[in-house]
Computed example of a mutant assay.
Amino acid sequence: MADRLPAAFAEQAANCAALGSPFMERLMRHLAAHWPDDTALAQHFAAWPGEIGPRGASLPLRLASGLHALVLSGQNAELAAAYPGGSGGNLAAAVDRALHRHDAFLARWCDRAPQTNEIRRSAALIAVAHWLTARHGLPITLSELGASAGLNLMFDRYALEIGGHCFGPANAVLQLVPEWQGSLPPVAKPVITDRRGVDLAPLRAGRPEDELRLLSCLWPDQAERLARTRAALKVQSAMVDQADAVDWLEQRLATPRPGQLHLIYHTIAWQYFPAEAQARGSRLLEAAGTRATADAPVAWFGMEADDSAEGAGLRLRLWPDHLDMAIGRAGFHGQWIHWQG
């Protein structure tokens, strides 16, 4: 048990390297080798139940976001100087001192799961929505589980660029340009008639403390992610309810939606649900599938970690067609997509 935290930091370091963040790799490797056992945070982490690494509670990323929050909020000038964009400094020393100086803050901060709301995951959502529109020709109702700030509920305001082909509005707020392999999505443009999400701790655009929480989860040496998120925050207008996701889903599925396709989705969120919640949510969606009709189809899309070492799996289930398809894979940050739609 004593070795599991260094192992979690080491695994996260490898993931950060693969995802193009040398700074985060360096930070994670330092924490793996120089963990402060004399802090309340260390005791908190040592008692944490279950999987603590990237496929579970993601404690390394929780801590990284807490340290980044100290930088973004101006609470620790020494740490800010050693971070990307700073004037320079000894990162290892600054981190070690910050872990002790801000021990209570970091312990509280890490109680909440990461809420990156990575915008590039919308590239997969855009492709799925085009595919569903081409197949059914119906307007779409969106329901997102684990929606965080709801930025990926606004995917129809973004443009997906693939080899000179544009999928999205001409006045798109931002452009998503993933490394794309596979056929192009259909050209059928989705029409979103209703959008709503749920999160245990939703973040509100325009609320400074919530925007800090969101931006801090982004990696400090990836400035384009920070810029993209700030742009999306300016147009976020979707409602995100604070509730248990499965209770909310039960109510959401109970509303008849004739003449509309209901798309329920989650992106790197399902893994944070307890096993019993996952089982109950699956039963609710499958029951909704038995009630689906050609005039009111139900689709369930997930972009989630699985047993593969390469990115996240893209899985789509569709009723009343009774389709269950692996439609590709994507980088966890949506930086690449292997499309099999």
Rank of each mutant, 00 (worst) to 15 (best):
A42K: 12
I327V: 04
W35L: 09
R157K: 09
D199R: 08
E211L: 03
D321C: 01
M24G: 14
H338L: 14
D295T: 01
R280K: 08
Q222G: 10
L132Y: 08
R26N: 11
L215D: 00
L27V: 13
D194F: 00
G163P: 05
D324A: 13
G163I: 07
R230F: 05
W270R: 09
S148G: 04
L70V: 01
T193Q: 09
V177S: 15
A33C: 12
N76L: 00
A201P: 06
R157C: 06
A299Y: 03
E118F: 04
A69K: 09
G182A: 02
L184R: 14
L67E: 00
E211R: 12
L153D: 00
L31S: 00
G66M: 04
A18T: 02
A98Y: 06
Q236I: 14
T39Q: 08
F301D: 09
M24L: 15
L151N: 02
I268D: 03
H136M: 11
R62S: 07
F155A: 13
A159Q: 05
I264M: 06
R280W: 01
C217A: 14
W35P: 02
E250M: 07
W336P: 11
A232T: 04
G20S: 04
T133S: 01
D306L: 03
D307C: 13
Q260V: 08
D321A: 14
R97S: 15
A113T: 14
C16H: 00
Q43E: 15
R196T: 13
F273I: 06
N152C: 12
P185F: 05
R196L: 08
